[in-house]
């Protein structure tokens, strides 16, 4: 499967164009790194790919046709701040089962303890919450995962644990992963291909 951005342009309101005519391709099974300075539009580009924003010009396509928006979205995004990505009034069990129901093996692989399922989001640390956000995004119909600074706030051991689990699952299911990060060491460790965002614009 091929995810493509064709001549995509975007700006917020009437502000100057953030980027124009961006072309980008990623295949399932690929792990691609996207790097660039703060404020260059990497996050917005990730949001476009995952369908959170609509491009003003150009299109996002999956195998040449528009991405379906009336069912489980095949492109899932994981954000930098997990505490902002969960409903504070839901318990963890409800949060993680919102889109699909991950089995125990997957939860265990991500280091999620069964007792955490009965807790509220404010009773878990950032690292613990982020594991839930990753589990939530890894539904069986996910074809592409976009990891926007997914482990930046976490300590090195948690970071390694989460990434090992994600890479293993991505390989098994032949998923594509786009890694957006400032950490060059991490990108070089994970990715098969690295892109500078400024080269796309």
């Amino acid at each position: 499967m091929l995810l493509e951005a064709n001549h995509v342009s975007f700006r917020y309101g009437t502000e100057p164009w953030l980027f124009r005519h961006v072309d980008f391709k990623i295949k399932t099974g690929e792990i691609v790194g996207l790097v660039g300075p703060s404020g260059s539009g990497k996050t917005t580009f990730g949001r476009l790919l995952a369908g959170y924003e609509t491009p003003h010009e150009g299109s996002i396509t999956l195998d040449g046709s528009p991405v379906p928006s009336n069912r489980y979205h095949p492109i899932q995004l994981v954000f930098q701040h997990p505490e902002k990505a969960v409903n504070p009034r839901w318990k963890m069990r409800k949060i993680v089962n919102e889109g699909w129901e991950p089995d125990e093996a997957l939860l265990e692989k991500l280091g999620i303890m069964q007792e955490w399922l009965e807790r509220w989001p404010n009773e878990l640390s950032g690292g613990e919450l982020q594991r839930f956000c990753v589990a939530r995004a890894l539904g069986t119909n996910t074809r592409f995962l976009i990891a926007d600074e997914m482990t930046t706030m976490l300590d090195a051991i948690t970071q390694a644990q989460i990434w090992h689990a994600v890479l293993e699952i991505a390989e098994k299911r032949n998923m594509g992963v786009l890694v957006i990060s400032h950490d060059h060491h991490l990108i070089h460790r994970l990715c098969t291909r690295i892109i500078e965002f400024k080269d796309l614009v």
Binding site: G111, D155, A156, I157, T158, Q159, A160, Q161, W163, H164, D183, H185, L186, H188, R189, L190
Partner: peptide
Amino acid sequence: KALWRALPQNDFTCEFK
């Protein structure tokens, strides 16, 4: 030691659970 080895530029291992 585990924290140091877990860095992506070192071994990227998560032996310490």
